[in-house]
Amino acid sequence: MVTLPTFLPLSEAARKYGLEEAHLRALIEKGKIRAGVMAGEMVVSEEEVRDQTINRKEDLPEYKKHAHLQGIPIWINEAARKYNVPGPTITVWVQRGIIRTLGYDKNRKLIDEADVAYCAEIYHQRKGQGKWLFDENGMPYKPKTGPLVA
């Protein structure tokens, strides 16, 4: 299934991502983000605006929803049960540095619950297994798009 891009009115994109409309217009002129006109209003690619403004997973709306959990330790098996994600999947995210290790309690590795909650949200949005979920910075992975085939 092909995911179609989402376009937002310029004013809404500026508000949502905390940017000036003039800055977005400059990005359009430089070819950094795509724009069009719908119903007489300029619209911009939400994904491209987001890519231009967000460089860390902590800046993503999906992460900010769980920011209140930052620094709270949870162990891997507890996280797997609580967030309905397989333990080995969480372990891989820890090994890749997407989920921070906070320390140890006896033989249990304690990890950051905010990172787990964020990763679990992306995991469930994208229907889990068989998909590359995160890039090396912990941002949701964007597959390379090729030509559409009918």
Results as ranks from 00 to 15, higher is better:
residue 8 L to I: 06
residue 39 A to V: 09
residue 75 W to L: 03
residue 57 K to H: 09
residue 31 G to A: 04
residue 70 Q to P: 05
residue 63 Y to C: 10
residue 17 Y to I: 07
residue 9 P to D: 00
residue 87 G to N: 12
residue 28 I to W: 03
residue 76 I to D: 02
residue 51 D to K: 14
residue 33 I to R: 04
residue 54 I to W: 07
residue 58 E to C: 10
residue 72 I to W: 05
residue 36 G to E: 13
residue 63 Y to I: 13
residue 68 H to I: 13
residue 10 L to Y: 04
residue 66 H to S: 14
residue 50 R to C: 06
residue 76 I to P: 10
residue 84 N to K: 00
residue 65 K to N: 05
residue 11 S to D: 14
residue 28 I to T: 08
residue 51 D to W: 04
residue 74 I to H: 01
residue 52 Q to E: 14
residue 41 E to P: 02
residue 41 E to W: 09
residue 14 A to M: 07
residue 19 L to N: 13
residue 61 P to T: 09
residue 79 A to N: 01
residue 65 K to G: 04
residue 18 G to A: 12
residue 36 G to T: 15
residue 66 H to K: 02
residue 47 E to D: 15
residue 24 L to W: 11
residue 53 T to N: 07
residue 52 Q to R: 08
residue 13 A to L: 06
residue 64 K to F: 07
residue 80 A to Y: 00
residue 75 W to E: 05
residue 17 Y to M: 09
residue 77 N to K: 10
residue 58 E to F: 11
residue 11 S to R: 15
residue 78 E to M: 05
residue 65 K to W: 02
residue 78 E to P: 01
residue 73 P to Q: 00
residue 54 I to M: 14
residue 54 I to E: 13
residue 49 V to E: 05
residue 64 K to A: 10
residue 36 G to M: 10
residue 37 V to S: 09
residue 9 P to K: 09
residue 60 L to R: 12
residue 45 S to C: 10
residue 74 I to Y: 00
residue 44 V to N: 06
residue 23 H to P: 07
residue 82 K to Y: 02
residue 71 G to T: 01
residue 84 N to E: 00
residue 44 V to G: 05
residue 68 H to P: 07
residue 74 I to A: 00
residue 28 I to R: 03
residue 86 P to N: 03
residue 11 S to E: 11
residue 14 A to S: 13
residue 8 L to D: 06
residue 16 K to S: 12
residue 35 A to G: 08
residue 54 I to Q: 15
residue 22 A to F: 07
residue 49 V to R: 02
residue 36 G to H: 10
residue 55 N to D: 09
residue 39 A to T: 11
residue 39 A to D: 12
residue 32 K to A: 13
residue 76 I to N: 12
residue 77 N to A: 08
residue 12 E to D: 11
residue 86 P to K: 11
residue 83 Y to Q: 01
residue 9 P to T: 02
